[in-house]
Design a protein around this nucleic acid. Structure first.
Lengths: 148, 148
DNA sequence: GCTTGACCTCAAGTTAAGTTGAGCTTGTAG
DNA sequence: CTACAAGCTCAACTTAACTTGAGGTCAAGC
């Protein structure tokens, strides 16, 4: 049979470029899964590499681990995800990205018109008042907004 | 003379849509300045509204307060910034935004090709290996990267 | 058979960006 | 002139996303 391509945390860390502690952390957050050897050590299937890659990619565009977790939760947990499973994810992500790109463009184009003029007195500033997402309440740091 | 348009924290909070506590916080971080009345209360010049607006706008696109602070530090601290002063900032910002938009597009376009294929085995994945900014070390949360 | 490096768990620390609360002072409207 | 809303300071708490450290286990080489 083909080589039993089980990976240890260390190997996954190596190959994915994320720290072992981060992998542990992702596991507690349910973003990745492992099974254990008789000696209680983690072993990962190959698909964990893809998952981790996606986690990092998504994070780089400002999507929170919680949201990534939700998306990844749509993958089947019993079997190894198929190409189609991943495809669904891809589509969902693409929409979020399109949205975010549009948002950034709006900001960029608004910015140079706006920043030098008097409109920053807030009331009439198009930057501030278009798609205004302020004033969501609650404590702690604010997340970078992404969704609709 | 024209009305002495000094603003209290409360007024700035109202007009800018950020909490009083946030304004205090920005001040400790050097993002905005105030002078005090004889009774030790803060008073702000009108330009603080523009500063705050810019802070929020920049934050929305994922720029950290530290970076915003650096940019704002380029403004003259003695006199009220002129249109040209703001213009410089605007230009710098625009570049950062262009960069970020490009990055997002690369991700978006790479994603659907990439996510469903086998290339996520990291070594050869174009998403992971182009402009790879991993492995900056140090503790704590990672900032969303923006700059060059 | 022992040593050395990889693992494990769990608790506590860190950074960013604020918020919340306590206890005290100001200022303004009646 | 006295309420009472608005300010002030300072310390502690919050969330996200991890890292660091302590104290103990596993496994592979010599």
């Amino acid at each position: 049979m083909a080589p039993a391509t089980e990976l240890t945390v260390g190997q996954v860390a190596m190959r994915s470029g994320v720290a072992v502690s981060a992998l542990h952390f992702y596991e507690t957050r349910g973003l990745i899964r492992s099974h254990r050897t008789s000696g209680n050590q983690r072993r990962y299937g190959r698909d964990v590499l893809r998952r981790v890659a996606i986690i990092k990619v998504a994070q780089e565009v400002g999507i929170s681990l919680a949201e990534i977790g939700e998306a990844l939760a749509s993958l089947p947990e019993s079997r190894t995800p198929t190409r189609d499973d991943w495809g669904l994810l891809s589509t969902a992500w693409r929409d979020a990205l399109d949205h975010k790109i549009a948002q950034l463009k709006k900001l960029r184009d608004g910015l140079s018109d706006c920043i030098g003029c008097g409109c920053m007195s807030i009331d009439k500033c198009p930057l501030r008042n278009k798609g205004d997402r302020l004033a969501n309440e609650g404590a702690g740091a604010r997340r970078l907004l992404v969704g609709p």
